[in-house]
């Protein structure tokens, strides 16, 4: 197994750092799947084992790396799956801030490692300094590979454009101090509502005029739980109750410069948040709905 990749442009280095930083906020452990055409980062739910993942990130290497070489195990098993502590990688990448180049390669030191060789300009001389980080990784055996495939999810009932992530994050963080769970409502009319309810308070932040990408309605509502604004057609609305902390952690992806963010909801069951960037990076976060 071999892997070697080089990055020399400031833009990709910054984006790569932001992506890994966002991942490290979601979870301590992370799996990297190194394939021929893309680099994948997969985060699983710590409590329910590896499948299905809560984060799936695809990075097409062409726009990030100036050089990218990998050799898998054999013809039938072309990819490399590595498990590592995401905070280790995130912390090491901070060096990339002013770096001139980054080389990543799979090495074997006292244990298998992802070695980062970073060239940093010196503030006092013309020469560059070299910083090396050996991050210990665990190679995942073939028999467990099936746990790390792209999640198959049911077709969402609605896909709606998200408001500015930063704004969403500010509001969710305020809501988190008051309640642990937040209800997400989306309507075919382009409205998105975040709502928390406690014994003593009810707070609703309502966004409107959002672009609806897809709507598979009408939605069936059998319970009395559904609340609507006056004159709103219930069958056009779906909702899902999620953990506020998890939702907030995904929103820290606002650091990654993106051009498209979409929220897809499977009524009551699943919220999928998807972020895409200029370099065709796709970051998807899956949050299971809380059902009583």
């Amino acid at each position: 197994m071999k892997f070697r990749a080089v990055m020399i442009d400031a833009g990709p280095m910054r984006e790569f750092t932001n992506i890994v930083s966002t991942i490290s906020k979601l979870s301590k452990e992370c799996v990297a799947r190194i394939a021929d055409d893309q680099l994948y980062f997969i985060v699983s739910d710590e409590n329910s084992g590896p499948a299905p993942p809560i984060l799936w990130c695809e990075i097409p290497h062409a726009m990030f790396f100036s050089e990218y070489q990998m050799v898998g195990l054999d013809d039938d098993h072309k990819d490399i799956y590595l498990e590592f502590t995401s905070t280790n990688l995130a912390r090491s990448l901070i060096t990339l801030k002013n770096a001139k180049s980054l080389k990543m390669k799979l090495t074997k030191k006292q244990c298998p490692c992802l070695t980062l060789e970073i060239e940093v300009p010196s503030s006092t001389s013309q020469q560059t300094r070299q910083v090396t980080h050996d991050i210990p990784v665990k190679v995942i055996p073939r028999k467990l590979w099936s746990d790390f495939q792209e999640p198959k999810i049911p077709k969402p009932d609605i896909s709606i454009q998200l408001p500015t992530l930063k704004q969403l994050r500010t509001t969710i963080d305020r809501m988190r101090t008051m309640a642990a769970e937040v209800m997400l409502w989306a309507s075919a009319e382009g409205r998105l509502t975040l709502q928390i309810k406690t014994d003593t308070s009810k707070v609703s932040t309502r966004f409107k005029d959002l672009r609806v990408e897809a709507f598979e309605g009408p939605i069936e509502h059998s319970d009395s739980e559904t609340e609507t604004q006056a004159n709103e057609d219930k069958s056009n609305i779906c909702y899902c109750r999620v953990d506020a902390k998890k939702f907030s952690m995904f929103l820290s992806a606002d650091q990654i410069s993106h051009n498209r963010t979409v929220c897809s909801i499977v009524h009551k069951r699943l919220v999928v948040l998807c972020l895409q960037t200029e370099e065709n990076v796709k970051l998807q976060c899956f949050i299971t709905g809380i059902v009583y």
Partner: peptide, 22 residues
């Protein structure tokens, strides 16, 4: 009655928050 608050940010026009505090 609960105290009702309605807030609207000055720079963004497509969002508002309403709160009911007991």
């Amino acid at each position: 009655s609960p105290l009702i608050l309605v807030l609207q940010p000055q720079s963004v026009h497509n969002v508002m928050t309403d709160c009911e505090i007991s």
